[in-house]
Each structure stands twice: as C-alpha cells, then as structure tokens.
C-alpha cells in the first residue's frame, strides 16, 4: 500500500490537539494503513513533540500496533484456556498449513494475516476464530476450510 506523507500529516494534525494524542494518532494511522510506517512514527514525533524513542516504545508496546504491513483480512485464533482445550491448536495448525504462514505472519499476497490471541472473553463459544471482527464460535476444521474458501472466493470476485 502506498504511504502518503500528506495523508499521514492530515491524520496527525487532526489528532494533534490536547495531551495524550500520540496513541490516538497512531491508532488512526494503523487503521488507515493496517500498520505503522516508519515515516508515520517520525512525523508523529515531530508534530506532537514526543521524542522518537518514546513513540517507538509506544508503537512496540501495544499489540494493536504493527510495524510490519498487515494483510487485508485479519484472522485471529483464540488460544485461551477454554478454546485451547476445545481444540484451537488444531484449528491454528490447519490455518497455518493452508495459508502457508505461521501465526503472526502475513501471506505473501498481503491478503491474510494470522494471529493468535489469548482470550476473547467468549469462552462458552469456544473454540473461536475471529475474521475481521466477526466472531465464529464452535469452530471445527471443516468450518475453517469453508472460511478460507469463502475468503478466496470473495477475493476472486473483487
């Protein structure tokens, strides 16, 4: 995805009012580009008067921020205790094999990012797989296969 300096400037300027606007600005940039480009961190530091070392510390601290480009679709597999005992490791294993990536990585075509999360607070629905914020409960291996097929199909249509 093309990173536009002027667009980043715009986002930062919008958030630049008041204290504690660094995280808000970074969130906006993360939402726009699905990651934090180095340029964005430098611009945010300069505009908001926060040392770059501090901005970098914040950007690496929170799991919600990524310094690597993320895929268009984000698949999260819950690895919390309840989901774990109900077989989420097998689901993650299947996703990793099918997508050819490890958890935390993004497919080479920048389509799918795979993540493991620790608990989504919906243990009764476990094992849970979240696709771009959509919760799918009681997941099975065949449901995972179907999910991947539907992603491939909608991508082919688009």
């Amino acid at each position: 995805m093309q990173v536009s300096i002027s667009e980043i400037h715009e986002i930062i300027n919008k958030e630049a009012s008041g204290d504690g606007s660094l995280i808000a600005a970074l969130e906006e940039i993360q939402a726009r580009y699905r990651y934090l480009p180095p340029e964005a961190l430098i611009l945010a530091s300069e505009r908001l008067g926060v040392p770059l070392s501090q901005t970098y510390a914040v950007a690496t601290f929170y799991g919600a921020f990524s310094l690597e480009p993320k895929g268009k679709i984000c698949i999260q597999v819950c690895m919390g205790t309840a989901c774990h005992v109900r077989g989420s490791p097998q689901l993650l294993d299947r996703l990793e094999t099918q997508l050819g990536i490890k958890a935390g990585e993004t497919t080479r075509d920048q389509l799918v990012s795979l993540e493991r999360v620790n608990c989504l607070g919906a243990c009764a629905l476990g094992p849970i797989v979240v696709t771009d914020g959509d919760y799918s409960g009681q997941m099975t291996l065949s449901k995972v296969d179907r999910l991947l097929k539907s992603i491939a199909k909608s991508e082919a249509e688009a």
Binding site: P38, L41, P51, L52, S53, Q54, T55, Y56, A57, T60, F61
Partner: peptide, 25 residues
C-alpha cells in the same frame, strides 16, 4: 536527548534506539 527507550514488553523488552538502528539524536 532521549535517544534510547525501553521497547517491546514482557520477555522481549529491551533497551534500544528507535528502529534499532544508529540514532540520529
């Protein structure tokens, strides 16, 4: 000058410069 900071968290936490390259400041 605030050239360094504690980056990442938990077991990965460490002292480093931004982007872990030589610092401009």
């Amino acid at each position: 000058v605030r050239a360094i900071s504690l980056i990442h968290r938990g077991m990965a936490k460490k002292v480093a410069t931004p982007f872990e390259i030589s610092s401009a400041t």
